[in-house]
């Protein structure tokens, strides 16, 4: 096993000495493709953001309309009468 370990070390040392291939310059168009992908990514992020904002605005508008509608109709009913009663009114009602 020790011999095998030595043999493996010799093999790995020899492999490590293999000449490094010539590192070429960037292939034509690589930077363009990378930048185009980056732009597409930014456009997608912006589109998602706009979509979220639009949905948020729609829901906020719906809630606002509902709140206005409730505040307009509800006081005309029982709530308005309740708030009109004074303490003395309640006393009279209690005595009756």
């Amino acid at each position: 096993m020790r011999n095998m370990d030595k043999a493996l070390n010799r093999l790995l040392r020899s492999a490590a000495q293999a000449p490094v291939e010539f590192a070429p310059s960037a292939p034509f168009g690589l930077d363009d493709r990378v930048l185009a992908a980056g732009r597409r990514g930014r456009v997608t992020e912006l589109a998602v953001l706009i979509k979220v904002i639009r949905h948020g605005l729609i829901w906020a508008s719906v809630l606002m309309i509902l709140a206005l509608a409730l505040s307009h109709y509800a006081p005309a009913g029982a709530l308005a009468n309740d708030t009109d009663l004074t303490a003395s009114d309640w006393t009279i009602i209690g005595h009756e």
Binding site: L12, S14, A15
Partner: peptide, 17 residues
């Protein structure tokens, strides 16, 4: 042999590894 491999064998060694 138990000696180091020849420098000319480094590419083949790399391929084997």
């Amino acid at each position: 042999s138990e000696g180091e491999l020849a420098p000319s064998e480094s590419i083949a060694s790399r391929e084997l590894v």
